[in-house]
Nucleic acid binder design. Structure first.
Lengths: 337, 337
DNA sequence: TCACTCAATGCACTCGATTGCATAGAAAAA
DNA sequence: TTTTTCTATGCAATCGAGTGCATTGAGTGA
């Protein structure tokens, strides 16, 4: 059909005007007479004129693309965040460029490069588990690109962030476990020094203290993946020191934990309670269904994108760091008493 | 640090050369002397010169961005495909722009517009369930943008596609159910006229015929979402016509089905077998674990991206439509005998 | 010494837009 | 009528690259 996209110049030629006039007419510049404006806009519409974004961006140095770095795509929480980001970005007319670091430091660095190369006007990032160098993130800032961390924030970099209230989430969950009679509550967590892990641990410990339960370090395990779950949990269940509850860093570990606890002959929740973290799809299909902490990923995505876009457009006036906290919600189901 | 990105012109000025020489030197043009080339490249490296993608693309009309339209992001299968696309795109130095139609025709149309506006050089799309007008997809082609459908292909448009072998997947699953003694195999499917549904139905029917089981239309139900599952399945289980197996269009429905079947007092798989489709995370956490058909989403993403990029770069020489078929694999677990 | 070749580089235009400044022409003021 | 003041428009430069063609100058052959 329309072989080539038509340009401002084409319109100008057709209407016997100069490209500048056409440009102004399209942008509703008041210097242009109403007749000319209407004529130009009508012609543009009829001939399906489309602004060449590349040229526009090159000229104006504006760029309505934001980059997103996620450690994992096939993942309930992160894909929820992604959906939230996408939703907000779309409503504000931004495009999103997605990079997948796959929990790999090197790919994370490469992702940052890619996004800087693409000259996005802002980046939303959640770091990989094992990232402990921050030069690449610093480079984003050095390139004067706005940066907002979400969920897995990077402590080494001083910038805006949106996080879930991990402390309160963990506190409430463990508080609930204790209230329902659990005394030996194990914590299956991540080895990482990321704030999401340390904050939850603080919530866990404070909740125990509230119930006058002594924090027992031998009940805290590094176990945040499928592989670790299959290795660590059987060991715990075979030990002489069997917990009466598991508070898990994510739903997957909780689900596998549930499976193994049952296969060892314990009843859930009568003998052992289990609580996850995220509230993903899988929590509704286990038997019994999993009690968990809803992380509101979609909302986090919304908020992070909103904050970033406000920064880009200069609408966020606060000079220092903006830190948004997303509330969590304890979802009680059958895996706890 | 480096306030502004440095440009070819800056390098030229610094080395007392013309921008054209610098450009050629950077591109290893043989017309440039080795000394000059090395000098330029060294300077560029030292000063962290970065090609301005916008300018490059404007000039060359090349654009290394491909757009992706998915009906759903928070979804095991689609996020797997996305990961596959991202992986392949990255290795070929393409960026991906993601649009989320959220199973909504209007958003799908808008997504197409967005991607055309962004002047992506190709689009990978999977249509929404209820899309039955195709003008927007046709417009992609009219704009001379390469288009490849994946999974949920659009029958109204004549273009490349990558699909899973739904027929064989369904055939093998139902064949297996029948082999293990099931005689009254219900099919919980989608009402949509999409090929993924009709092909699976053909597989289902052919497998039944192979085992001399008469196809009973009263055992075929529209049930492809959570809500429908909670409505339709109890009705089936209360009827006088209770199946001894459920073949479900996706894992979620299968998981909910499993739950309800158990809650109605039936044993799985002794009384009723259940089989899903996708092989997502949830199949491993149900009790018993779900038998399902692996759709190889990651591979589909890889293949679709590969095909699209080959089209863009003119490496796919076949003139007609290219149709790739991704093999499925029956994963046997505890929910079937 | 002169013409010719060829390697290395520069000039100037282009991609498709935006924008500061100049200008034409009409209307208003003197 | 002349000057002033706008209003509406055009000119030309610019963003950061790439590229056809012209140009320079050293080297070659006669």
């Amino acid at each position: 059909m329309n072989k080539k996209q038509i340009t401002l110049k084409d319109i100008a030629k057709a209407l016997n005007l100069s490209p500048s006039t056409v440009s102004r007419a399209m942008n509703n510049n008041p210097a242009i007479s109403v007749e000319t404006r209407d004529q130009v806009q009508r012609y543009a519409e009829e001939h399906k004129y489309k602004l060449n974004t590349l040229a526009f961006q090159l000229r104006t140095k504006r760029n309505n693309t934001i980059g997103v770095i996620v450690p994992e795509i096939v993942h309930f929480f992160f894909s929820s965040v992604l959906a939230g980001i996408q939703e907000e970005a779309e409503s504000e007319n931004y495009n999103i460029l997605i990079c997948h670091s796959n929990e790999d430091y090197k790919k994370e660095v490469k992702s940052v490069e890619t996004l800087i190369d693409a000259r996005v006007s802002g980046i939303l990032a959640s770091q990989s588990k094992n990232t402990n160098q921050y030069n690449h993130f610093q480079e984003i800032i050095d390139n004067e690109i706005h940066l907002v961390f979400f969920d897995r924030i990077c402590t080494g970099i001083n910038t805006d962030k949106v996080v879930v209230d991990d402390y309160a989430g963990a506190f409430n969950a463990v508080d609930y476990l204790a209230k329902t009679g659990c005394k030996r509550i194990a914590f299956l967590t991540s080895s990482s020094q990321m704030p999401i892990a340390s904050n939850r641990r603080m919530g866990y410990e404070d909740a125990l203290r509230k119930h006058k339960i002594v924090v027992d370090r031998s009940l805290i395990f590094t176990c945040d993946t499928r592989d670790l779950a299959f290795k660590v949990i059987p060991q715990i269940l075979q030990s002489t020191n069997i917990p009466d509850a598991f508070f898990c860093i994510n739903d997957e570990v909780a689900a596998y934990c549930l499976q193994m606890v049952k296969s060892f002959g314990f009843r859930v929740p009568e003998d052992i309670s289990i609580c996850g973290f995220t509230n993903g799809y899988i929590t509704e299909v286990t038997d019994p269904e999993l009690t968990t902490v809803d992380q509101h990923g979609h909302e986090m995505g919304n908020e992070a994108a909103k904050l970033l876009i406000n920064r880009i457009e200069g609408k966020e006036t606060k000079n220092g760091i903006v830190s948004k906290l997303i509330k969590t919600e304890l979802i009680r189901r059958g895996s706890t008493r």
